[in-house]
Design a protein around this nucleic acid. Structure first.
Lengths: 344, 344
DNA sequence: AATTAGCACTCTCGTTGTGAGAGTGCTAAT
DNA sequence: ATTAGCACTCTCACAACGAGAGTGCTAATT
């Protein structure tokens, strides 16, 4: 990847900015007069030609202006975007909303989705935090009928799980409560692994309960478990590049199909990130559905304990600086809220 | 509303069918040759003219074919649509999926949404059932830190609620457990009303807990509480009438905005229904967002105890017979599943 | 050697025009 | 009451065309 001269960088920046604003191709002439540049349109044309050659720009057709390519955006995001913090009053507006909102993780997640969508004018994605190796706080067993049991599970982070299962034989509520309190006494504060390791129980009923308990606790690791909050889908529809709904179909389908979405999230979040925020531009050759979209993601929560993902999906033509800052800021807020809730 | 002759009814039926198939206006000539009608195109033209006069048909422009109006669809649905049951093999395919699926209400609801969306090729809406006047099954209080308490609430239907709140003073886990077991002993099987009536407690801590308990139980009545599962949004986008995304924006926005959606659901579900299935055609003058859409809804669950709503949203040009049957059938299945789970 | 003015050329886009096709309403005949 | 016939209307697809914006290239300038 050849280096760009300073002037070329400037031009790329201008084109990206202008294009995100207008959604139109930018020509040499309009640039020079729009920004009072100290070189002529001919010079710019030469530069643009070489940058087009290099793959950073693209002409929708001969004799149209230039538009950034996927590569161009990638270069811009890696090297040129200035990492501004969100302006103070925006930060205040956002944080205010969180501290105003009714307490509780679910409310915060919904709010995060809504704030992200509104701020970025794109679709937002918020996954509920899932616990990793998190310990049992409390187990409750309730008989529903005959051998059927409702298991309610509180994990240390306050996360609640429920599962219905059947025992081999009908069992009284007293018996269940007894088992539950023994399990609580012995395994409170233990992780799934520890429970597996320490199990040395003969009572078949208790063994059965423990296996369901472990099973449910281990399901944490699976991203699919957690709820996903989406918001601002209509923002994407409203963008001009998705004016004919065919174009909008792919990103919408992606947002709708959990498995696809999780695939994108999990594989993106693995990659290296700048300042903790990952930027996936134009599907990166892997996701056809994201051809004209970009996804900006970050993790939140407490690393290795309880983490989730938030981010936005929008057109490739996106105000990266602002959006990245917003995602980062909201991620930070959520992390704080989660830690506060978790702190004991 | 003037009566229609038998022949006019026939013509209306044909137009509705043909239009749902092709999405195009239907002309007199194509009708007579497409269906081998025993009258000439001129006769049909006369009939169509009077039906247009009466408001059941519409011409997109002079010298185009006819399209059913909102009124036309309404007449069709009230009088002409034949209430077929779903074909046996479709029914089997659907029910099979439910009994195959992992147990648990949440899974069933997701599945219902997915099945409805696929069957109707439209967007589906499934609200989690909410309990009405349902009794407390079990209360659990867990100290998180200082005066903060995590309240976990199991209702008789198996529904689980959680709430975090603060007490006036820091309280030990023992103390909380003690309160919880007293509340369980006294109020198990009671509804919120009964709890309010019987309260005669002096302990301020317990009073505080009870007030939060009542509060949370009463929130059941609020539709907003329950989760809403949507599926098949992209089906709506794919319909030709929503080809330019502007058109699709309104229904999408409606599906996205919970409050709007709940408004439609709650006000529609109140109205009288044919065979328990409500059909809302073209917003009925109330919802501008639904101008070109129809919504088909039904309740499921156990009346007055635990009920939810399922349905679909699609273009006004919709195969009403099939869709109504599907909604009814899936609603019935869900009702059965809920009753089974609830039975004790 | 880099920059720029000038110029011929290209391509889109909105407008206009045209003809085919489908459908209509009306009148007169059956 | 129905139908054949006819003149008329309106959309839609396609072609033609000019304005506008932008380009690449060459030759002159700094």
């Amino acid at each position: 990847m050849a280096e760009l001269s300073e002037r070329q960088k400037l031009l790329l920046t201008l084109i990206v900015h202008e294009h995100t604003r207008t959604a139109l191709p930018i020509g040499s002439k309009s640039m020079v007069q729009g920004y009072n540049l100290p070189f002529s349109s001919a010079t710019i044309r030469n530069e643009l030609a070489t940058m087009t050659e290099m793959g950073y720009l693209r002409q929708p057709h001969t004799s149209a202006g230039r538009v950034p390519t996927e590569e161009g955006y990638r270069f811009f995001v890696s090297n040129l975007v200035q990492q501004t913090n969100l302006p103070a009053n925006t930060r205040n507006t956002i944080s205010h909303q969180f501290y105003q909102s009714p307490q509780g993780l679910e409310n915060w997640l919904k709010l995060a989705a809504s704030v992200l969508a509104k701020q970025s004018q794109a679709a937002s994605i918020v996954t509920a935090p899932h616990t990793q190796n998190v310990a049992l706080k409390h187990l409750e067993l309730l008989s529903t009928r005959a051998a059927q049991v409702l298991m309610v599970l509180v994990l240390v982070g306050g996360e609640i799980r429920q599962r219905i299962f059947n025992l081999d034989e009908a069992t009284s509520q007293e018996r269940l409560s007894q088992i539950a309190s023994r399990v609580n006494a012995r395994y409170q504060g233990s992780t799934a692994q520890q429970i597996s390791a320490e199990t040395e129980e003969e009572d078949p009923l208790e063994l059965s309960v423990l296996s369901h308990l472990r099973d449910e606790m281990e399901r944490s690791g699976n991203l699919l478990t957690g709820a996903v909050y989406l918001d601002g889908l209509t923002n994407v529809l409203a963008e001009p590049e998705f004016a004919q709904s065919e174009q909008a179909l792919s990103p919408m389908r992606l947002l709708e199909e959990r498995t696809l979405l999780n695939d994108v999230i999990s594989r993106t979040v693995m990659t290296e990130a700048v300042g903790g925020v990952q930027v996936l531009i134009g599907g990166e050759g892997t996701w056809e559905e994201l051809r004209d979209c970009s996804v900006i993601l970050t993790r939140y929560g407490i690393p290795d304990q309880i983490t989730g993902t938030i981010g936005v999906l929008g057109p490739m033509r996106m105000p990266y600086g602002h959006t990245i800052s917003t995602v980062r800021y909201v991620g930070g807020l959520l992390s704080d809220l989660v830690s506060d809730t978790l702190a004991e």
